[in-house]
């Protein structure tokens, strides 16, 4: 059910047991723009933008339902009876069932129910979850201006969302896009009461699985890196041999 890039996220952390304790996330990140902590009513246009992002990023694939907002259990989180199961096994046991460590993780209820969903979290906390991977239930509701632990409101001991939540990919969305998603989840999804059992995880809350070495820096390295190129028309034609390819944009 999960898409290839989701599985890749899981695979990247499957080797977590061997990952050495390395410093978390680089210091080079740029501060996030101020994020509204809620209060003002979002516009319909913003909610529709957030809705589109939630659908085209496959949030429902893991968080319930499907890319169809009318589907049963849409965004309501893991349910024990759902088929196929939305429970993940992270660690060596992903391929060898008996291997250890083995952590079962479950996508959480993203509907704004107070007791079991995101109702008690602010949009800023949801923003920080998507931008920095910080668990909203364990991270202060503050504006974060750096990614060096202990500085700029970045927690000294960050607690990260369990894999395969693809926040290392989602964080590259623009500030406004993340705000749109948060606004949609908080204001435009109907609350559903569904208590998702807590995800398991290592005592470092995945810090050693989310090092810069493993998930890259935020923001991404300047374009082009060694694996990218600044295309010219000639190279594009020679390189791909595909004459129907559209001309590269400047």
């Amino acid at each position: 059910m999960a898409r290839p890039h989701h599985l890749a996220a899981a695979a990247a952390v499957a080797g977590l047991a061997s990952a050495a304790a390395a410093p978390t996330l680089g210091a080079q990140a740029r501060p996030a723009a101020a994020v509204a902590g809620g209060g003002r009513a979002p516009s319909e246009a913003q909610l529709l933008r957030g809705r589109a992002l939630v659908l085209n990023h496959g949030c429902g694939d893991c968080h319930g339902g499907s890319p169809d907002p009318a589907s049963e259990g849409f965004l309501a989180g893991y349910r024990p009876d759902a088929v196929p199961s939305l429970e993940f096994r992270i660690g060596p046991c992903a391929d060898r069932p008996d291997a250890q460590p083995c952590f079962r993780t479950r996508p959480r209820n993203l509907t704004p129910d107070n007791a079991t969903g995101t109702g008690r979290f602010t949009e800023r906390q949801l923003f920080n979850a998507l931008r920095y991977g910080l668990r909203p239930g364990e991270t202060p509701d503050v504006e974060i201006t750096g990614t060096t632990p202990g500085q700029g409101n970045f927690p000294a001991h960050p607690k990260y969302l369990a894999p395969p939540m693809p926040w290392p990919a989602f964080r590259h969305m623009a500030d406004q896009e993340l705000r749109d998603i948060a606004a949609y989840l908080k204001h435009a999804v109907a609350p559903v009461r569904n208590r998702v059992p807590d995800s398991e995880g290592p005592p470092d809350f995945w810090a050693s699985a989310y090092t810069v070495a493993l998930i890259g820096p935020y923001p991404a390295a300047p374009f082009p890196t060694a694996r990218e190129q600044r295309p010219t028309l000639a190279r594009a034609v020679r390189g791909t041999g595909d004459r129907s390819a559209p001309p590269p944009r400047r």
Binding site: R120, F121, Q125, E138, P140, D141, K159
Partner: peptide, 11 residues
């Protein structure tokens, strides 16, 4: 609201 180390999202 109690979460880990926080009351109403605050220290």
């Amino acid at each position: 609201v109690l979460t880990q180390h926080l009351i109403n999202g605050k220290h």
